[in-house]
Design a binder for these strands. Structure first.
Lengths: 339, 339
DNA sequence: CTGAAAGCGCTAACAG
DNA sequence: CTGTTAGCGCTTTCAG
């Protein structure tokens, strides 16, 4: 029914190992004539390697798993950001003969279990909180953690320059003349993505001469709805504020909508600046001024590291985390302060 | 190092087979006492089954692949729609012990190759053109094709009621008083998704008494930019048109932007209606009136079918394709015709 | 209810 | 450059 190595070997009059070597590109060990004959027969018979068999024998699956924590409803988080990461990695890895297993993680232990059970060759952690990454103990496999600032030496962090992004936003607002600004982001612990952005933002504002009291922050979940609610109550709860920096475009767009719904205007009454440069940032009126991440570079870097580590075999060695550049995209939601 | 079935068997003083049966829930064949003992040891030793070994022996991997065609740049298409499908399927399948392999397909033949090579248990085709699905010859595995209208009896189509969605849009515009409307969608062949929407749209418009000359169509790629360009030249190229139905929200939002950029207003000068109800449909000004697909239901249905077919073993049997309900979401981009 | 034998298709390691 | 020998860890089959 399906063609096996032994079928090809029989027909070519060589051993199974020779065929295996040919099929795996270890051609240094085989004569050109044999190679050609084997390849010809393989093509004619429509040989397709059996991945499970290879994985079992070689104890390596050529699979890289994209692990994503599941939310309360047990369903996968599928933010545009996650999507870009997973989709992009698949492309890169496929071109190098690797495959992507997409898996939601319900409990921390499943990370190690998945690695062992599947003989994974590499792992990409997407959207994992740093505290969880800190706790991971895995040393058999390269582990890239997207957007992680964890100090866990077993993992390699790949993220954008969040601190620099925060600075860009702060400087932009300060340069426009704002003296009372607000940072809006989700609750966080330690110096993760959100902490970095806030620190950079604050730093740039203070450098530009803003009074510390003029640089506030507020905790909001990262959704359009939560942003909208913040926008609605902004004037009442933060009467002096003339500009808001939101850690996510979804949030920023919601804030804009709330402000307008409450009778204000953007950027007339309040300026808004976001983070991510998602596609819809240009669909709003005005367009959303935002800090753009270089997603293709982030994905390429993560893939490169994974493949690299797989090559040189396990033991990550002390590889430095990677921070990708960010830049400001001007669209119209930032203007001078009101009055 | 890693725990195997034989380790547990040794310690429990039973055979490997008994342990295997316990681990696979075939507990009818094992005495309660043995079950408990085995389970206890397995838990203590941290047993994790080896998936490749199981796949090889059982010739079945518990893997369902999500296959997505790759574009020109060889990278995965990751529309919000695809994302919802793949993410949602992962959730459902995970709860039933299955895993998701995400794979970009560069060439048709890779579909069959992937199925064989991985001993896949099921396949979901996402965003495949019907012509390609027509050509597939696979009879070993359940094959669900999302949004397909292919008549290929080996595949089971799961899609929204596109014809009904088109009708809803047509009726809405006709009811608002429009007499000259335009359908905007990508080039298509046969009666696929786009063809269905167009047919439904046209049908509803004619039923409502519009003149056939008043129901036009134009080919545009499905992107914000292409929509914007259409919006910009709308007044010149289609001077009498007072409403546009776009087959995708991305496109619709672009059209709105183009119209406004050209000095017109929505819905003052031109009404716009979209399809999909993506998250950003509410971020625009005005919000986009659109036909909403029931994505959770679509995903649930696709998962249910796959699991069902896997259970009853191959041979799809003549299962009817599934069409999910759609509904109109009113947001403000549709109004009465100008003048 | 339990076990022994055989083998899934492939590759590592070494010998020639 | 090529072949042989041993499995990888699990399940299927059939016999107790």
């Amino acid at each position: 029914m399906t063609t096996r190595l032994s079928d090809i070997a029989d027909e070519a009059g060589v051993s199974v190992m020779t065929v295996s070597n040919v099929m795996n590109g270890k051609r240094a060990r085989v004569s050109p004539a044999t190679i050609e004959k084997v390849l010809g027969i393989a093509a004619r018979l429509g040989y397709v390697p059996n991945i499970p068999a290879r994985s079992l024998a070689a104890n390596s699956s050529h699979i890289v798993a994209a692990l994503v924590p599941v939310g309360e409803n047990n369903s996968l988080l599928v933010s545009p950001h996650t999507v870009a990461v997973v989709g992009g990695m698949e492309t890169h890895l496929r071109h190098h003969g690797y495959h992507v297993l997409l898996r939601g993680i319900e409990h921390e232990d499943q990370v190690a279990q998945t690695i062992r059970g599947w003989s994974l060759d590499g792992v990409v952690l997407v959207e994992f909180p740093d505290e969880q990454i800190d706790r991971l103990r895995v040393d058999t496999v390269p582990l890239v953690a997207i957007d992680s600032y964890s100090a866990n030496p077993r993992t390699i962090g790949v993220r954008s320059d969040d601190h620099g992004g925060g600075r860009l936003a702060g400087r932009r607002l300060a340069d426009a003349g704002h003296r009372s600004v607000l940072f809006a982001g989700p609750p966080y612990q330690g110096m993760g993505v959100v902490g970095q952005r806030w620190a950079g933002f604050r730093e740039a504002c203070l450098e530009a001469g803003l009074d510390p009291d003029g640089v506030g922050s507020v905790e909001v979940l990262t959704s359009f709805e939560d942003g909208r609610r913040l926008g609605l109550r902004l004037r009442r709860d933060h009467p002096g504020v003339t500009a808001v920096f939101a850690t996510a475009d979804h949030l920023a767009v919601g804030i804009m909508a709330g402000i307008v719904e409450a009778g204000g205007s953007v950027p007339g009454d309040v300026s808004v600046i976001g983070f991510d440069d998602l596609d819809f940032a240009r669909y709003t009126t005005p367009g959303l001024t935002t800090i753009a991440q270089n997603m293709p570079a982030k994905v390429a870097e993560a893939s490169r590291i994974i493949l690299d580590e797989i090559e040189r075999g396990a033991a990550a060695g002390d590889r430095e985390p990677v921070a990708l550049d960010v830049h400001l995209v001007e669209r119209g939601s930032v203007g001078p302060p009101r009055e």
